[in-house]
Design a protein around this nucleic acid. Structure first.
Length: 439
RNA sequence: GGAGAGGUGGCUGAGCGGUUGAAAGCGGCGGUCUUGAAAACCGUUGAGGGUUGAUCCCCUCCCAGGGUUCGAAUCCCUGCCUCUCCGCCA
């Protein structure tokens, strides 16, 4: 949510800013609602004031044993008038709030203009794109023959856009998760946290997924409903919802591994092959809660933490600064990390790191106490994937393959693989023997 | 699933339907004292909003939402959450 004062006092500037996102603000509607709000609020408050004064007078008179009936007669219709005003005020406030909740965040000045992915700005590249003496396979052609990856089985038990993993491939994903968590804990100073995978609507409103993007979410039937988390950002950032944080506690840095659930509505026909775009995937998420002046640097640091994962895995990647049109609703500035996938001969997103500034904090009422003033101020929130484990699995498989379809385990994952150094075709027979696979 | 208790400010914890936005204690902040610190003592200390140059002032908030009343932290209803006991269970 944007600062209401900013909307009231600098509406034209906000309009101009939002135009960068190709968002048209209905400013006359805002002006109209806000002036109504003002009038009705003043009226309501003066009626409330009158009620309070009269009631106190009655209390006093009664205490002194006076006859209060004449006083009671005077306030006869006050209650009705007040109730009517209060009802109108809450209606207008609800409308105004709904209007505000639909406005996306303002972009940082250094976010490049542009409408789509094509206009994103490449910031840097890391690692060599390898030359292959054979045609590299994609993760499906590697994983399925190994018996480590089975889409038909997942389709049977759930539906499309799911996968089952077996044996060393399943373990490889777990190894990636463990490695990432350990890295962020031991070297980047994050606190590991375990959180609910289902959340209430209030939490999703806080981080900005609701009310606008309900169709992207899976809801669980319950009254009130639960939603499966689309990212750990939601439960983790909501840890600070409604809190006033003491200055010594900042910055807060959390890392969490969770599954993520996305309906992928509107992406029919997109990335239908393989594990790229699933309804359920594993992710290690970094969340930071910082003071206003620290958030720009924190975004650089956090993105660096995500990059470090890819560097240690020796996976080629590039950092991209998203353009105005591609930057998410709540974000002021977002870097994507894109990993090289030999099977697709393309860079694909594996991490997205965003600075939300005070946009989420205002919705969350997440503040810190400034000791200089003694007053609470909004925190800034950031998060980023550190990194998406499902896509990291794909990237490792494709980048570490040989021409026989074997996969070498990256060095940093060896401690987590129980002695397995190469995942080779010999496991296929064994997996087939101990599990049900459809080949 | 059954039975009971409870949700009050940063924390603990009082609060006959009437000047209670809320006692007291702790914590925080400022001061006195001290070479410095501690202790002691004095003072101060919730959040959001309207208005304002800034104050003053006004409104709202004692889990949430309804209701009763001239007036609700206090009474009634519903929901949510927490705790204790029993049952069941990874």
């Amino acid at each position: 949510m944007l600062d209401p004062h900013l909307l009231r006092n600098h509406l034209d500037q906000v309009e101009k800013q939002l135009a960068r996102r190709s968002v048209t603000l209905d400013s006359s509607r805002f002006r109209d609602l806000d002036s109504q709000r003002k009038a009705v609020q003043v009226e309501t408050q003066s009626l409330q004031n009158e009620r309070n004064r009269r009631s106190k007078a009655i209390g006093k008179a009664k205490a002194m044993g006076e006859d209060i009936q004449p006083l009671l007669d005077e306030v006869q219709d006050l209650g009705d008038r007040l109730k009517e005003a209060e009802t109108r005020l809450s209606e207008i406030q609800a409308e105004l709030e709904a209007f505000m909740l639909d406005i996306p965040n303002l972009l940082d000045d250094d976010v490049p203009s542009g409408r789509s992915e094509a206009d994103n700005l490449e910031i840097s590249r890391w690692g060599e794109i390898p030359e292959w003496s054979f045609t590299p396979k994609d993760h499906v052609d590697l994983g399925v023959p190994l018996g480590g990856m089975n889409f038909e089985a997942a389709a049977k038990i759930a539906g499309s856009r799911f996968v089952t993993l077996n044996g060393p491939i399943a373990r490889l994903q777990r190894a990636l998760i463990q490695f990432m968590l350990d890295l962020h804990l031991a070297e980047h100073g994050y606190l590991e946290t375990y959180v609910p995978f289902m959340v209430n609507a209030e939490s999703l409103r806080g981080t900005g997924q609701l009310p606008k993007f309900e169709e992207d979410l899976f809801a669980v039937q319950n009254d009130p409903p639960f939603y499966l988390i689309p990212t750990a950002e939601v439960p983790v950032t909501n840890l600070v919802r409604g809190e006033i944080i003491e200055t010594d506690s900042l910055p807060l840095r959390y890392v969490a591994h969770t599954p993520c659930f996305r309906s992928e509505a509107g992406s029919y026909g997109k990335d239908v092959r393989g594990m790229i775009r699933q309804h359920q995937f594993e992710k290690v998420e970094l969340v930071q809660i910082v003071k206003q002046e620290a958030s720009a640097d924190a975004l650089e640091a956090l993105t660096g933490h995500a990059e470090e994962v890819l560097k240690r895995l020796k996976l080629p990647f590039r950092r991209v600064l998203l353009c105005a049109g591609d930057t998410g609703f709540s974000s002021a500035k977002t870097y994507d990390l894109e990993v090289w996938l030999p099977g697709q001969q393309a860079y694909r997103e594996i991490s997205s790191c965003s600075n939300f500034r005070d946009f989420q904090a205002r919705r969350l009422k997440a503040r810190w106490r400034n000791p200089e003033t003694g007053k609470p101020e909004l925190v800034h929130t950031l998060n980023g994937s550190g990194v998406a484990a499902g896509r990291a699995l794909i990237a490792v498989m494709e980048n570490y393959q040989d021409e026989n379809g074997n996969i070498t385990v990256p060095e940093v994952l060896l401690p987590y693989m129980g002695g397995v150094t190469v995942i080779d075709r010999s496991i296929a027979g064994w997996i087939a023997a101990v599990s049900i696979t459809h080949r």
